[in-house]
Nucleic acid binder design. Structure first.
Length: 253
DNA sequence: ATGGCGCAGTGGCTGCGA
């Protein structure tokens, strides 16, 4: 099973890239973030024509998540149970016995801001929910745009902002891995300065001034069968790219 | 020089992302 995540920064604008990428890579599951469109505008026909089922949770202008799958999606769940939130950031579904949770984690804007407090509240709620989900689902994937670079090696050395690399955010990430979830990318040797996001400005991609903030976390049963995890930088080189690159994990299932 | 780029909304600009 090949499972991927990609923050597309507007599905409307990026649909051609997504369709091309699905055709070229044929993942079993693709989790999308930052759809920036309402459910009524979701491109269901195009996704279906590409051979994929879809579950989605969108809103106007901001946020929005989707799970695309070659097999049928079951047990679709919206949001974090018990956490009231108008922002569409979480979608869960079961595919061939694997519980897939797609998340667009809050940005946080600046350490100490109102949005930062919301980010930490959101992360705490997610973690408590995942604790229960892991009891119910032996095979579980938590994936998406985490907006956290878990270690120093996951951020360009010149990254000056505290957001995405602050101790509080990294502690929240560690709380998730503390539940037994493994960062699939770090199960394998990787190049130095491996990132999944690059600012549109300042020639950041050309200079590889980036962050690794898009992740695939695996429950113990899936970690044991994970045979590869890579970042595909090719779509970031296209005309009008998303600022994020897809991350792909391969599971021997 | 605190911007730069890109997207959405109902705009000639602002808010936001990371």
């Amino acid at each position: 099973m090949k499972i991927a995540t990609w923050n597309v920064n507007s599905l409307k604008v990026r649909l051609p890239h997504v369709l091309d990428w699905l055709a070229a890579n044929r993942p079993d599951v693709l989790c999308l973030q930052e759809l920036k469109l309402e459910d009524k505008s979701f491109p269901s026909a195009e996704i279906e024509a590409a051979g994929y089922h879809a579950a989605f949770s969108g809103q106007k202008t901001y946020n929005g998540v989707a799970i695309l799958s070659r097999s049928a999606l079951a047990g679709i769940g919206h949001g974090i149970p018990g956490f009231d939130d108008e922002q569409k950031r979480v979608l869960a579904a079961t595919v061939n016995g694997v519980r897939v949770i797609c998340g667009y984690f809050p940005n946080g804007q600046a350490v100490g801001s109102e949005k930062f407090a919301y980010k930490l509240r959101w992360l705490a709620a997610l973690t408590e929910w995942l604790r229960e989900e892991l009891k119910a689902h032996q095979r579980l994937v938590l994936t998406g745009d985490f907006n956290i670079a878990p270690e120093d090696r996951d951020a360009h050395p010149d990254w000056k902002d505290e957001i995405h690399v602050s101790p509080a955010e990294r502690a929240a990430f560690a709380a998730l891995t503390g539940l037994g979830l493994a960062d699939a990318y770090r199960l394998f040797p990787q190049d130095d300065k491996s990132f999944s996001w690059w600012d549109y400005r300042m020639g950041a991609f050309r200079r590889n001034f980036g962050l690794r903030i898009d992740h695939i976390l695996l429950s113990p049963a899936l970690r044991d069968v994970c045979c590869a995890c890579t970042i595909d930088k090719a779509p970031r080189k296209l005309e009008r790219p998303s600022d994020h690159a897809p991350v792909i994990a391969e599971l021997e299932l």
